[in-house]
Design a protein around this nucleic acid. Sequence first.
RNA 1: CGGGACGUAGCUCAGCCUGGUAGAGCACCGCGUUUGGGACGCGGUGGCCGGCGGUUCGAAUCCGCCCGUCCCGACCA
Length: 552
Amino acid sequence: MIARASQLYLPTLREAPADAEALSHRLLLRGGFIRQLGAGLWTFLPLGWKVHQNIVQIIREEMNAIGCQEMLAPVLTPAELWEKTGRLSIPELFHLTDRGGRPYILAMTHEESFTFHGAELQSYRQLPQQWYHFGTKGRDEPRPRAGLIRMREFIMKDAYSFDRDEEGLEVSFRRYEAAYRKIFERCGVETYAVQAEPGMMGGKESVDFLAPAGSGENTLVTCENGDYAADLEIARGIPRDPEFPERLDAPEEVETPGATTIDSLAEYLSIDPAATSKAMPVVANGSVVLALVRGDDRLESAKLAATLGSDFRPATEEEIRTAFGADPGSLGPVGFQGEVVADEALRAGQFVAGANRTGWHLRGVEQGRDFQARVADIREAREGDRCPECGGALRFQTAIEVGHIFKLGTRYSEPLGAMFLDEDGKEKPIVMGSYGIGPARVMATIVEQRGDDRGISWPDSVAPYAIHVVALPGAEEQAEQAATALDAACYAVLLDDREQRAGEKFADADLIGCPVRVTVGKKTLEDGAVDVRDRATGEERRVALADLGKVS
RNA sequence: CGGGACGUAGCUCAGCCUGGUAGAGCACCGCGUUUGGGACGCGGUGGCCGGCGGUUCGAAUCCGCCCGUCCCGACCA
């Protein structure tokens, strides 16, 4: 079937709305792939849906290839299931009731639903199982953004593995990891698999697939030598060494009037900001904990939360005065009665710290001698750090999270009673994993990574059409012939048969981004030829009309 | 949820400060000339100026409330 531009709903735009900033947002909108219905709500127009379906099909094939079975679970879900797993209070969850007042939620992911069905598995003989679906997710995002990058409703491929034990889960997990690499490769997307925080999934181990892009919500940290990649939230970097002042045998008080920031403190004392320490009092589990990082560093809250094993919040000024007897800006670990968590960078050396006396600091404060701290990696890696593996330079890029896989363990099987009887006759909870990919995010990522100022450049694997035949005035018939020949050779063909000027057709072709453009016009028809142009490279060659369909 | 901005034609925006019958470019429709990189001329269609209330003889314009959208942050499988 030849698609005719004159009949397609393909509303391309010369300009993007002023509020569209991300490249993928602008180009998908301008190319007539998507349209907005509301905040975080997007309709896929015919071409956009084609691309989405192509990505879905690649994912489907790779899931099937590892023995994963496709099914479909509803979006509307009895709230009871989420009550049992304790996830009913997640703020992003959409709640609703039916006419009888019974509570439901819109699934934002389907662990509960799949585990509910997994509970029907009875025996180790039925394990392992791998199930997946392309399910619609609803999320009451506080801030949808950037077109397809963060939506309130979207389709996700989520898969769930059911194993007897941790060893089985490990095998399943690695299989998905390998399948994901193939999927992203086939979609033409550059990704890095990195260790990540499990977040609300509450699992043990998780691997994030991050794709560097011009826009995105994650920061990918990679080493120039290719031996390290991590999400900024957990990235380890080696900071430069501070220039320490002369060593002191004991801390020494120094008056620092008005020096409440690291910059002003370092300037006042004429020392390297890296030779100071920054005190960040937080409240975790009802008590004040002092998080201490080097003066030139920033606290990475995800790392601190992981170290503390719980969420925390900044302490209020009142809590600070009660716990330290001083104002913020003069706080330090010496003499503090609560727990101190100090960053690795403070393990050795003497630093300036707040004296817990407003307007005063201490010089020569040493961890282990002057105060006792739990030493952990709680700083945010930053530009200029060196690689923890090889000492190479670290690179920071914004990235889109296109996939995330989790080892769930028995987080869901226990509360939902998904038990099986093992060989030894004992009842055990099923050990689970969950594995997600957002096809729309993959789509946005492809545009981010491959788009240019003129438009999109789809890889063959996901392109809405393989070949875009542009019919120029006076060559309509020959363009039909060319399209027919290509169609017969099994190419998906888009024929631009609209009554438009050449320039507009070319501009639209560049924007829409089919891999190959065939230009049929009077200029070359005298020689019985057409121009075949590669969208990605811009290379053009002349091919005899009679040879079309024989070559790719 | 905090900070900022915006809402006028399908799209991009002007008009608002200083109240007095709603504008431009692009798009769209018709005719003509053009036709290998977003043409030109002539003539047209299209707007509850986000909503409600207030001030005023009179509100797109001033004031208040609400709604919506975007950006930064918080948040985020």
